[in-house]
Design a protein around this nucleic acid. Structure first.
Length: 550
DNA sequence: CCTGGGCGCGCG
DNA sequence: AAAGCGCGCGCCCAGG
């Protein structure tokens, strides 16, 4: 599918048949797409899902499957260096690399029909010629399914009760202030802070001024971070920490935020909608990012404003300890999979006698995934190595490749970026004749930094692939439960956060949805890791408000 | 005046 | 206890 002036060009490719080309006027597009999708469940191919599918959604059409050429190209370029450069795509890639593209450019990425077809062929050849075509193909399909879902969730929005939100804000901040002013409670707390520090003109939003005022009052902190302030015994600490917490709420998810991101919902829904702008593939590891609205940082404080429509409910599900489970599976580490059997992997480590307490198990495991070297995590690392040599070798191997400037790949073949030129320059410098100890220290430090990145990349990236497979399968199951998948009357996904989903569903279907969520999780595990015995247990709650999910 | 970096904190 | 991964965003502040 390619957009043209006044219409959209559809080219139907059927194996063995000649391509059938038609140009559909925009006014007829939705009906035509619905008809084709129902008749033959095609895989729609287009340059960019946000552009084209966004338009289709607004016109009232949903589709089952697609290839997002822009996202697939990004993956393929890293993974196999193909498809080859092309002037038409270079612009897109450059803009993405520079991160300075105005959103409007992204939102209207269209290409000539010939280019869409040519690019699809180039990508198909690149996959076929790759080392593991099956896995890469699965990754491209999952990425594209994610793109469909992101567009749908953006379009449908997250049910949001502005009244609850406003009450919540007013309760803790006081009445809404004029634009740019502090709410009364914040102003009072600022005054308390000024009094306690004897700094009458202090603006507590200024980190530098605050640090100076703390020092003047005889408080010797290095930073103004929360955890450091918590160690200090001084009357300023309580009001200052409260100020920081509320100031954050006010600026990040306050009234101004709601004005910008919450809009009226569909007619008859009764509830408004928060419309975040998800960016599939926006993180190097394959996780989604967001652009505006901060949907991936929706604080627990305001989750009470996420409320189902009357007659509807929310099914909230999250995976317990996704990343260590993914590591066990990709490493084929059966000992670790045994410890991961059941709901609580960290307790599993204790029960298997690997580590003494659950708290230690958590610290040690996260340390292994992130590359902690010091503190409790560093001390516990040898125990994990002895208990789970296979899993350990996967992350250690990834770290070693990163430290020497190599790249690593996720389970399905998403490839890490090479280190930046400045990194390589520093590594080269340390071997020159006039290199100083300082140069060598710097090079080693940067090498270890990059090693921690590649170490985490393989696990975080594979976890993101699991989550995409989970989403794609769940989306299909929900469509089957609810007819054509329109958001008006059938269960649909409204939120996704790395290892957590929210489905908005008519109350009568809540149990079916909960079952679907579990089946999809099991299916994602089998799709990626076959019969390797690793569980992906979910915490599922059926609630009226997100705040009530555990 | 705008822009980019640093900081701090929200999320996983 | 407080560093080890990936992000976005709002705020200050220095530099142009």
């Amino acid at each position: 599918m390619a957009e043209e002036t006044g219409g959209v060009r559809l080219t139907v490719l059927d194996d063995g048949a000649a391509p059938a080309v038609s140009v559909v006027p925009v006014a007829e597009l939705a009906a035509r797409v619905r008809e084709l999708d129902a008749a033959s469940r095609p895989r729609w191919v287009w340059a960019d899902t946000a552009t084209t599918y966004g338009r289709l959604l607004r016109a009232g059409a949903r589709v089952e499957r697609c290839f997002d050429l822009r996202l697939c190209r990004k993956i393929l370029r890293r993974a196999v260096g193909a498809p080859p450069p092309s002037d038409l795509w270079d612009d897109v890639e450059e803009r993405e690399d520079r991160h300075d593209a105005p959103p409007t450019l992204f939102e209207s990425l269209t290409l000539p029909a010939e280019e869409v077809l040519a690019e699809r062929l180039r990508q198909r050849e690149a996959v076929a010629a790759s080392r593991e075509p099956g896995r890469l193909a699965a990754l491209l399909a999952a990425e594209s399914a994610g793109a469909l879902l992101a567009a749908e969730m953006r379009h449908d929005g997250l049910p949001w009760d502005r009244t609850v939100h406003d009450q919540l804000l007013t309760e803790v901040l006081g009445a809404r202030p004029p634009l740019g002013a502090r709410p009364p409670v914040l102003e009072a707390l600022a005054e308390d802070v000024r009094g306690a520090l004897d700094a009458p003109r202090l603006n507590p939003d200024s980190g530098q001024a605050l640090l100076r005022a703390l020092h003047s009052a005889g408080i010797s902190v290095q930073t103004t971070r929360k955890w450091e302030l918590e160690q200090v015994d001084h009357p300023v600490v309580a009001p200052l920490l409260e100020y920081k917490k509320l100031a954050r709420l006010h600026s990040a998810n306050g009234w101004a935020w709601a004005d910008e991101w919450v809009r009226p919902g569909p007619a008859g829904a009764g509830r408004e909608r928060f419309h975040p702008d998800y960016v599939p593939g926006g993180v190097v590891t394959g996780r989604w990012a967001t652009r505006g609205g901060g949907a991936l940082q929706l604080p627990k404080q305001v989750r009470g404003a996420v409320v189902a429509d009357p007659g509807w409910t929310l099914v909230v599900a999250d995976v317990a300890q996704l990343e260590p489970r993914v590591l066990a599976a990709m490493a084929r580490d059966e000992a670790m999979a045994r410890a991961a059997h059941g709901q609580d992997l960290y307790q599993g480590l204790v029960d298997q006698g690997v580590i003494d307490t659950r708290a230690h198990a958590k610290v040690a495991m996260l340390g292994a995934l992130y590359g902690a070297t010091s503190g409790a995590a560093g001390d516990l690392a040898p125990r994990l190595l002895r208990a789970f040599p296979r899993a350990t070798s996967v992350v250690e191997g990834a770290a070693m490749r990163g430290e020497v400037g190599g790249t690593v790949r996720t389970w399905l073949g998403r490839t890490s970026p090479p280190p930046p030129p400045a990194w390589t320059a520093v590594q080269d410098k340390q071997h020159e004749r006039d290199a100083t100890d300082d140069d060598r220290r710097r090079a080693r430090r940067l090498a270890r930094d990059w090693g921690r990145f590649t170490r985490n990349f393989v696990v975080q990236g594979t976890a993101a692939e699991w989550a995409l497979c989970w989403l794609a399968d769940l989306r299909a199951r929900l469509r089957a439960l609810g007819g054509d998948g329109g958001a008006g009357h059938s269960p649909h996904l409204v939120f996704f956060l790395h290892d957590e989903v929210i489905v908005h569903t008519p109350v009568a279907l809540a149990e079916d949805v909960a079952a679907a969520v579990r089946e999809s999780a099991a299916g994602a595990g089998r799709l990626l890791f076959g019969e390797f015995p690793v569980d992906f247990p979910l915490d599922v709650s059926v609630v009226d408000t997100y705040a009530d999910a555990e």
